[in-house]
Design a protein around this nucleic acid. Structure first.
Lengths: 188, 188
DNA sequence: GTCTATACCTCGATAGAC
DNA sequence: GTCTATCGAGGTATAGAC
């Protein structure tokens, strides 16, 4: 958990900047201007950039797990997948944000080791959840039976990550497209 | 075309660095060390970073069009799609490179306008080519008939772009997975 | 906790000798 | 065409007053 309102605000804005500009493009200076606080004050809360990104990732992680809990309340596997896909649509609508996971993956090379591991973990959470929902859908006849369930889950995840990235380059609604496409793939 | 061996070498190395580190993470200094030439000499060939990235993009573009010509010589739509997919596999095998298009898209925010347009153009080339091949495959009975062909093409492209990005975070062979997956989707 | 001030680095870019 | 030298801006980070 975050221990102050200021720290919380920093995380919120840093998260946005990470998702839009990326790790190497955002700076303590930009951050300080957006928040209305000096860079030294940000260093007080998060001594290094690595500390800050880790905190952002932890927060993102926690919020995402809560969302998955919400999603799990949906009454069918189809509704779960559609609500999952809607998260990507909503994220992109907020100023062209992409998944933090994709944003950090594109700058993975220059990231502190600990953050790299966090990103890897985050990917697995997506895959695990999607695999479960796909299995559920197959079990109750909503979805086609498929040979390699986890491969399916991975590729659906990849489609959304790729769609968000590419969506920035054109006016086409690629994420909504992906959302509809996935359903066509899964349903008999 | 490129007018000197040095300029050509710069483009080659810059391309690699862009694909692995991204636009904001690579610098003239890193580049100069790799090539064994001073930064001022690089500026002689490419006055600004925008000029350099444009040249890299143009080169990448040209090479890609040549590859598509090669691909078009394949004897079936299935072989074309598989050879297309193999390009992504090969790219990633070269030190974890991702598609230049995806790399630049992730830093699109800070890119010069002209480069942004180049990236958009590049996406369209992928889509157009894939759409054509899908149509060809449907026409000759290799592939399922599908409702929205271009949507299909887009999502296949997104899957590869996403797979490359995410592949960096784990040891799973996500791109080869995507390659196999696409065939399963298309073939009756 | 936030500020001012500053240290030290790297960045892209330019001037001018060779 | 490549070099040395340098500039100004912006980057992360720290010390110390308040």
């Amino acid at each position: 958990m975050v221990d102050s309102l200021t720290a919380s605000k920093i995380i919120t804005v840093a998260e946005e900047m990470l998702q839009i500009q990326g790790y190497n493009a955002f700076s303590y200076r930009d951050l300080s201007k957006r928040i209305g606080i000096k860079t030294s004050s940000i260093h007080y809360h998060f001594p290094t950039k690595a500390d800050l990104v880790q905190a952002v990732m932890n927060h993102y992680h926690d919020v995402f797990l809560e969302k998955l809990d919400e999603l799990n309340k949906e009454s069918s596997a189809e509704k779960k997948v559609m609500a999952y896909a809607q998260m990507f649509v909503d994220t992109f609508k907020k100023g062209g944000r992409i998944c933090l996971c994709a944003s950090l993956a594109s700058d993975l090379d220059g990231l502190p080791e600990q953050v790299r591991e966090q990103v890897g973990q985050f990917v697995l959470i997506h895959e695990d959840w999607l695999s479960e929902v796909l299995q559920e859908g197959i079990n109750n006849g909503e979805f086609y039976k498929c040979k390699n369930l986890r491969q399916n889950a991975r590729n659906i995840f990849h489609t959304f990550e790729g769609a968000m990235l590419v969506a920035r380059t054109s006016s086409v609604d690629r994420i909504e497209d992906a959302r509809q496409w996935v359903l066509i793939l899964l349903k008999p």
